[in-house]
Nucleic acid binder design. Structure first.
Lengths: 332, 332
DNA sequence: TTGACACATGTCATCGTTGACATGCGCCGT
DNA sequence: ACGGCGCATGTCAACGATGACATGTGTCAA
């Protein structure tokens, strides 16, 4: 900036005035400044500016478990579509689903003085350490899963309701033994909720819950293996509910390999080529982009000063898409 | 920081020394400072620090066309896996494949004084405006496609070679009329290269090039429609080469809807459920994570001062994965 | 003619942090 | 006993920008 000022023969302050449309500047001076700016390729230093005006960094920190997973990618896209038009930059990091990485990412973001924090919390974490920041007015919103140990804004899918609807759909088509394939049980919020929805649907239909019909696996291969185990049971399920996209893919693969076209399947979360599978896959679709946009809007509204002590919870509804695999009748 | 200093009864400088392990500090003082830091929940202000030390922001700016596309999501994941261990933060923005957004994103990143710039360039852009920055020593690497109007480092897939291999595979299985379904022709680098590879393979086999067998569409639906047009030709192709993931999905869907299991298909870029499609999809797989990591490592090596005037080009090889759809014999 | 006022620009201090250099004190060797 | 050295800490300025306030000039009404 000093260079530009020297070039034009004015003070840095005047250049600043021109660039910020702040205070009166002679038309001719303005033009000469603009020209010098172009000539020297000057770009104001955002870091310095932010520091001076005491503002937080015009950025939003987003923590997701993995970038490669299209679900979270789409969530991130939703976030970006909302924050960018507001002039905010998106800073992203992936936690690999570990509490340590998540925490270190958050620390980095806080040190950068981001204007808002959006977190897809890792299973094992505890977010009490963020209380101070939240109390200090920093907008913090959790996505896909609520915070642990702290009441905070969060945006989640209608996991329990969606799972209930999906399983009820299978029940409505005559199934009485329905297998559940989900992520590892432990602590994952979405898995818990969807499992509850599964039990809700069974209970509503007066069907018994059979622990033997519940299998787990974290990735696609593990889910496949889980399905193989279920099908090998003495009294195997006639239908399966896959509680997430990897479980769905694993189930689809396992059934295809076993050439079992008679087992009904409903997956949680939609897949790209669902309609051309054999049979076409029935799913309970989430709306990841909507989760992102809703969460981002929540952050913005907090930024615009709607502090509100109370934690706001937003639930994005799911949508059952019947395509064939969920409408198969029981094979026995 | 001043607060911490006051709490302990020392100067800010001493606190700074403790936190940066810089210069000698009495053990006792160090401990008292650390305790005050904990007590007050103090976090050093990175913006101020960076400004003072005149360093660039410890961040890498990444521009991708869309976050929702798993290809670019995986690329971003690859980038992050390399830059994070180096203490660099990843700043991401999506250009929606438009030159304007791309440029405005780059401007934002430059104003933030990022340490490096990684760009998946939009089709219509011209990157001459980045010459100054590059000359000034800012590491700039282009991913998936080279820069336009400027020689710069870039990491791309072996598009032409991969496409040639894929099409040659179809030729080897007896096909003589092979349709090409790609993105809109215009200017997109990857489309051009893959198209060249297609022509290379035809030429190598002594097959004629027939313009009627080339169709385009930007998204999945358009690609589907393109395939429908190809199949409706008086002398239709017996095999198809789909030049990107959307084209592949569109082709798969179109063939499935038309119940045409006799048309051979090779897609460029792998798809999640490729193996369970009917028939299983043969693809020329790219390695998006490798593109990301290679590009990130290039940036880091430039950061470590391997300036080198010359632009470095890195090509990530593709891999043909035969699964069935590409090995179908011609139906006539 | 004078003073009030609008306008164009300048001066200075400051944001939070850290480099460069200064200070004060105790200890050691000669 | 004294110079010199090392340690612990302090002082000051500066990074690049802008807010608060000051200055200087021209215009116009009284």
């Amino acid at each position: 900036m000093a260079d530009v000022a020297r070039e034009v023969g004015v003070t840095a302050k005047t250049v600043s005035r021109v660039l910020n449309d702040d205070g009166p500047v002679a038309v001719e001076t303005r033009e000469r400044v603009m020209e010098a700016v172009r000539k020297l390729g000057y770009q104001p230093n955002l870091m310095a500016r932010n520091m001076r005006v005491g503002a937080r960094d015009a950025a939003i920190g987003l923590v997701i478990p993995e970038m490669g997973n299209p679900f979270f990618g789409t969530v991130a896209g939703g976030v970006e579509s909302v924050v960018r038009p507001r002039g905010l930059t998106l800073i992203v990091g992936s936690s690999s689903e570990t509490a340590e990485l998540e925490r270190s990412l958050v620390a980095t973001f806080l040190a950068r003085r981001v204007s808002g924090l959006m977190i897809v919390p890792s299973a094992a974490g505890d977010h009490r350490y963020l209380r101070t920041e939240r109390a200090a007015g920093l907008p913090i919103v959790f996505l896909d899963r609520p915070a642990v140990g702290m009441a905070a804004d969060h945006v989640v899918s209608g996991n329990r309701e969606g799972a209930r609807e999906g399983v009820a759909h299978l029940v409505a088509h005559g199934h009485r033994r329905i297998g559940f394939v989900g992520d590892l049980p432990a602590v994952l919020y979405t898995r818990r909720e969807r499992f509850q929805g599964y039990r809700d649907a069974l209970a509503a239909a007066g069907l018994p819950f059979d622990r033997a019909l519940v299998e787990s696996g974290h990735d696609q291969e593990a889910a496949s293996a889980a399905v193989v185990r279920l099908l090998a049971l003495p009294d195997p399920p006639t239908a399966l509910f896959a509680a997430n996209n990897f479980a769905s893919m694993g189930a689809v693969v396992a059934l295809a390999r076993a050439r079992r076209r008679d087992v009904a399947l409903v997956g949680f979360d939609d897949l790209p080529l669902a309609e051309v599978l054999e049979p076409p896959l029935t799913v309970v679709a989430q709306d990841p982009a909507a989760i992102g946009t809703a969460a981002a809007e929540l952050v913005l509204s907090r930024l615009d000063g709607r502090p509100s002590r109370a934690a706001h919870r937003e639930q994005i509804p799911t949508r059952l898409i019947a395509r064939g695999s969920g409408e198969l009748p029981p094979s026995r």
